[in-house]
């Protein structure tokens, strides 16, 4: 039994679609995990969910106009992320309400466009649940490029983002332009959300952002170790999720989410055990 599973996994690694899924999935999941830690600490973690719903509308628009759904969704979701920030900063609408508002407009837009377009409903709804195994070579390249860009931005702004997440007002008094840091954070999140919809789909995209971060927060002993652990959980979930779904013929996106959830449960149990001892 064990040798059968191992041989199937070895065989899977020879398929180019599995290789593409592992590469794109690992890079994107690492970005999600890094951003997720900052978003969770800022209590802004549902922005991933909101932007995922916006991407539903954006993908609908791209399909209607016969444009590439992932590439051309990026500017739409970027604009939506800035809109959410502006709404919560300038109008007094609370952050969660701003996300909810934008999210529902995004979904309504997607459904409206699906109704108008008619014929591409199947394509549009395939984005709801994603399929990492059908990622194209071009999508892999853009995933790697954008992920490296996001990691470089986080690395350059690490201290600014750290102190802004810790205390917004103290960050201001340290001379950090917290408004710009918030803008960079949500724009990076928007990019990452669009990349992630191919992996787990619009419905589950927030799990890639939230779960690795909150799992790491249970047991990490410092900020850098939290980021590293979150990346470790996220990337390992992609590899384990793809492997398990291939061997047992399960939906890949959902399997990845369940592995992430498994890491969270184990971390929470470990944290409880550490507290007791």
């Amino acid at each position: 039994m064990t040798s059968d599973v191992l041989s199937q996994l070895g065989e899977a690694l020879n398929y180019s679609f599995i290789q593409r899924a592992l590469i794109a999935g690992s890079f994107t999941a690492a970005c999600c995990a890094l951003l997720g830690v900052f978003l969770v600490l800022r209590r802004f973690s549902l922005i991933g969910d909101g932007l995922g719903h916006v991407s539903f509308g954006a993908v609908g628009l791209c399909l209607l106009l016969n444009l590439h759904p992932v590439f051309y969704s990026i500017p739409v979701v970027l604009l939506a992320s800035l809109w959410i920030l502006r709404l919560s900063d300038k109008t007094g609408v609370q952050g969660d309400a701003a996300i909810g508002l934008t999210s529902s407009v995004g979904v309504a837009g997607g459904l409206m466009l699906a109704g108008i377009g008619g014929g591409y409903n199947v394509d549009l709804f395939s984005y709801l649940f994603g399929n990492i195994l059908i990622i194209s070579r071009a999508e892999v390249i853009i995933s790697v490029f954008l992920s490296v860009t996001v990691v470089a931005v986080i690395s350059l702004l690490y201290h600014d983002m750290f102190v802004t997440a810790f205390e917004h007002e103290s960050a201001h008094v340290l001379g950090i332009q917290t408004g710009k840091i918030n803008t960079v954070l949500v724009m990076c999140t928007a990019l990452t959300v669009v990349l992630s919809i191919r992996i787990v789909g619009i419905m589950l995209v927030s799990s890639l952002i939230i779960l690795p971060g909150i799992a790491a927060l249970q047991i990490a002993s410092g900020f850098r170790s939290t980021l590293l652990l979150a990346v470790l959980f996220a990337v390992s979930s992609i590899w384990i999720g793809i492997g398990v779904s291939f061997v047992f013929d399960l939906p890949t996106g959902a399997t990845i989410v369940f592995v992430n959830f498994g890491w969270f449960v184990m971390s929470a149990m470990a944290a409880r055990h550490m507290k007791r001892s």
């Binding site: 750290f162 810790f166 410092g222």
Partner: peptide
């Protein structure tokens, strides 16, 4: 729930 150490802060 903030994960930083005293030294980091």
């Amino acid at each position: 729930g903030f994960p930083a150490t005293v030294r980091e802060i």
